[in-house]
Design a protein around this nucleic acid. Structure first.
Lengths: 174, 174
DNA sequence: TATATGTTTCAGAAAATATTGAAACTTTAA
DNA sequence: TTAAAGTTTCAATATTTTCTGAAACATATA
């Protein structure tokens, strides 16, 4: 394994917790990304110097994010693992999962709060929060429902779009 | 304190770690959001039933995210804390911080990898990753540089924009 | 200057999270 | 069947993160 790959694997391990999963999951993801072939659980355990059980749990987690799938080789009973799809589709899945885990629970709590609060309650802050999170949620959701190609288009178009609006902002201030 | 507020505070505590900070920070943020006045550290410690030291650290963290600021009352030496700005501007700050913490370190690692790798190295995956993260980073950065008003406009416009593109995607598949 | 009233820091304790590894489980094939 | 070759689970352990509370620090006022 080349040196730069080790660096990326360590980095993904360290970043793991900021991205919403643990060190092992980050390392396994990086190793699979960098591999141009499917890898067996034992290979991952040996190379990353972690227990076989830990690999099993990391793979399970990555599969729950739909980032990794299992393949088989003819005449071989072992499970081999590989990342599913290209980098853009992986990024889309990560964002989709994060929207689900980070936005949805709060949205449903806030919606319930509004529904169930006694009439005289002053819910102005709750409503403000709810409105802001709803538009964020919808926007992210819409973006992620596009094909990877269209999404790339939108992301690349963003700078010019925002330049126009930034100009408008500048005007309003002057 | 009303009941629904307690629910929101607990929820923010539980979600804290998913949002990139700890339980106490989440709870303090929620309490300050829901308050329509600035609160003293001791009030927060008493109400949330946590130590004074913990409150101090949580406030420090929230200040490092620029989400909270300190105010004073005439004839009173205590520090009072309040959220800074409206909900949209808070959301912008949270996303900005997260872009910094979750995207930038990885981008700079990948950029270095490309720069320092020996010529014959096959960096196709690294380059793919780098390209995807660069456009995401740029798009987020541009969006967040807009005024809260323009950002709201963009977020609300997203659905119609994506509908057009979704139609295009559908065509291409048929 | 001394004291009163406040905030911050940080070492140690507690709690939460991640990891190991052996046992249980599954599947294939002799 | 039963053994072999694999995967998964989960109780025990290790590690990391968070929290406490007393001491150090800061500042205003008598």
């Amino acid at each position: 394994m080349e040196n730069y790959q080790q660096d990326i694997i360590s980095h993904f391990g360290e970043m793991g917790s900021r991205w919403g999963f643990n060190r092992t999951v980050g390392q396994v993801m990086a190793r699979l990304l960098l591999a141009n072939e499917a890898l067996a659980a034992n290979t991952l355990a040996d190379e990353l110097m972690i227990s076989r059980g830990n690999v099993s749990m990391a793979i399970k987690e990555l599969q729950s994010w739909q980032l990794v799938n299992t393949v088989h080789k003819p005449g071989d009973r072992k499970d081999y693992y590989q990342v599913s799809g290209n980098v853009t589709s992986l990024a889309i899945k990560v964002m989709e999962q994060r929207r689900k885990r980070e936005l949805e629970p709060t949205l449903s709590l806030l919606r319930n709060t509004v529904l169930q609060a006694p009439k005289e309650t002053n819910l102005s802050v709750v409503n403000e929060l709810l409105t802001a999170l709803e538009s964020l949620n919808t926007a992210v959701d819409e973006l992620l429902s596009l094909s990877p190609e269209s999404l790339q288009l939108v992301l690349k178009a963003a700078p010019s779009l925002t330049k126009v609006l930034a100009l408008k902002d500048k005007w309003l201030k002057e």
